[in-house]
Design a protein around this nucleic acid. Sequence first.
DNA 1: CTCTATCTGTCAAACTTTTGACGAAAGGGA
DNA 2: TCCCTTTCGTCAAAAGTTTGACAGATAGAG
Lengths: 211, 211
Amino acid sequence: MHASKKAIPPSVVKRLPKYLAYVQALCLEKVEWVSSNELAEQLGLTSSTVRQDFSYFDFSGISKRGYETIGLQNMLINILGVDTAWQVVVVGAGNLGRALALHEEFPRRGFNIVGIFDKDPTKLGMKVGALDVKPMRELPTVIGRHKVNMGIVAVPAVAAQSVADLLIVAGVKGLLNMALTHIVAPDTVSVIDSRIVASLLELSHSVSFSR
Amino acid sequence: MHASKKAIPPSVVKRLPKYLAYVQALCLEKVEWVSSNELAEQLGLTSSTVRQDFSYFDFSGISKRGYETIGLQNMLINILGVDTAWQVVVVGAGNLGRALALHEEFPRRGFNIVGIFDKDPTKLGMKVGALDVKPMRELPTVIGRHKVNMGIVAVPAVAAQSVADLLIVAGVKGLLNMALTHIVAPDTVSVIDSRIVASLLELSHSVSFSR
DNA sequence: CTCTATCTGTCAAACTTTTGACGAAAGGGA
DNA sequence: TCCCTTTCGTCAAAAGTTTGACAGATAGAG
């Protein structure tokens, strides 16, 4: 089903979304070819890294031309698993949760937000785009009915683990953690941290110590 | 000023916010000691990694007890540069930009949002918490007046680079990029990507390929 | 048709990060 | 007091990642 020589190393997977974003832009501009050199320059990498990365998948470039943009795009879409539509729920209807539920970029990339939940009774029924905020007890039903496979955890740190547990029990296979805490999950469930505050702290360090 | 034996490797810096979050929680619960083993288990690491990481800073544990939580917390705060208050502006007053400007976690961690900007005239003057949305031309003034050192780029991909350039010219030293594009910056300016969509794509890959 | 410049694919070397092993310090019970 | 267990700090081996170098392919100019 998914064609690739062997498992792709994590370091490479992290760069794939970058490649995809750039190649999609090129496709829209009707550019047909792109070289490892151009990709490297635009994405802050070396051309060697780019070629090495692409060597993990069944896709070849042509000397003197580079890589065919549409083919590359399809390859990346396939490898990233974006060729299937994902059903996603958001837990936490605070500022961040609501913003994510409304983020236009998600549906555009194949991630459909099918529900938003909060335990705070004062938030229930609140309209967030086409959705309204539902109580936590409806989580399993919605996840079952829409065959939801991913959950976005956008609650305060203290609640993150228990929300994650609820999502996992309900059958979700991937979690995007926006809280600063670490989430423990069985290894049948993937967890990726996108902790904005952690990034700012990291930034704070590099700004403090840059010459 | 900042006490540390030598430059801390990037891999270690990435983990520091995790340690800090956990240790701060312990401090609140009045726990006085924590072992490398407990940290490892709670944060999904090995105890060896934890001890190796801490060996980069001037801070020692005690055999049979572990690390003193308050001292560790202070050390991490110092190294992450969170002992100084940071002044931050947000560019882009879409859903995401507004949510970030309102995010309670930022001021709590020492990041003060002092302005939010957008080029769309229909958004100007809109209230976002205590701030109102200002036009791009006021960016340099606000940055100068408040001694702003960081900018959060929360605009669509096509505009990200030009917004970054404006922030850099105005003197900002760190950028948090929420767009899916790569941002090019001189090496006196640090850029960290916190691209939520990229994380979801990564997640999509690991869910697709998990056994 | 040949030559040249460009660009890929691959390999091995250099570098970085993680892990496992072990000696030494410290606390607590016999 | 002495031993036993826990836990640290350090080191070196193992694993993972990035880079540089170069052979071979190909397009286009002359």
